[in-house]
Amino acid sequence: MSVLDDARLGFSDIWPAAVAAVPIGLLFGALAAAKGLSPLEVFVMGALVFAGGAQFAAVELWASPAPVFAIIFSTLLINARHVLMSASIAPKLGRFSPAQKLMGLYYMADENWALAEKRARVRQLTPAYWFGMIVPFVSCWLMTTTMGATVGAAMGDPRNLGADFAFTALFIALVASFWKGRVTFWTVAAAGIASALTYKLVGPPWHVAAGALSGLLAAWLAAGTEPAVLAEGVKS
């Protein structure tokens, strides 16, 4: 297969995900603008970070002046899953040069990672396929988020439209997409209660760390009470 065919295949695999991200990108830009970020800052963040969930969380925490430590800490926690994802995809990048690996992984996100894993089951991954996915996907995110920030800034006080609550609703929907039953329930309950209490008693930004760590601890404890047979099944 030629390089061009491979790149075209990457594009045809990613475009539904790119289209689905259009309204999310517009929403992100509008919410970032409501927090005082300029369209240029939104563009730079998308180009350098390119991580939807982490970007939404960061903008929710954003204030003037920016709570730099809380923003970076929250980003690290949310993106920690990338460590497992890249560990899984790395052995499948045999046809990539070291530079192509380092560049390609810069824009590894949930969607293109999942598609690449799927593709790797039937064919060896090529740089053309990978970049054929990434270039349109990243361009789409940059265009829609910057557009959202430009339009959003003209909308005025987001509270009037309930837009300040859009994050909360969006995150609730995202949590549902990560749902794995009982363990997730205890995670969510512990994280929610610990975060709300810390916010009231200590104040921001400590609620993020306290809530997240309580959630992890709850997941660890809840998973330990899972029936032994099930735990063995997961291991094998």
Partner: peptide
Amino acid sequence: DAIPPAVLVAVIAPS
């Protein structure tokens, strides 16, 4: 696996 939901909930719980 619990990291994403834990962080998301921790961020929105005050709101």
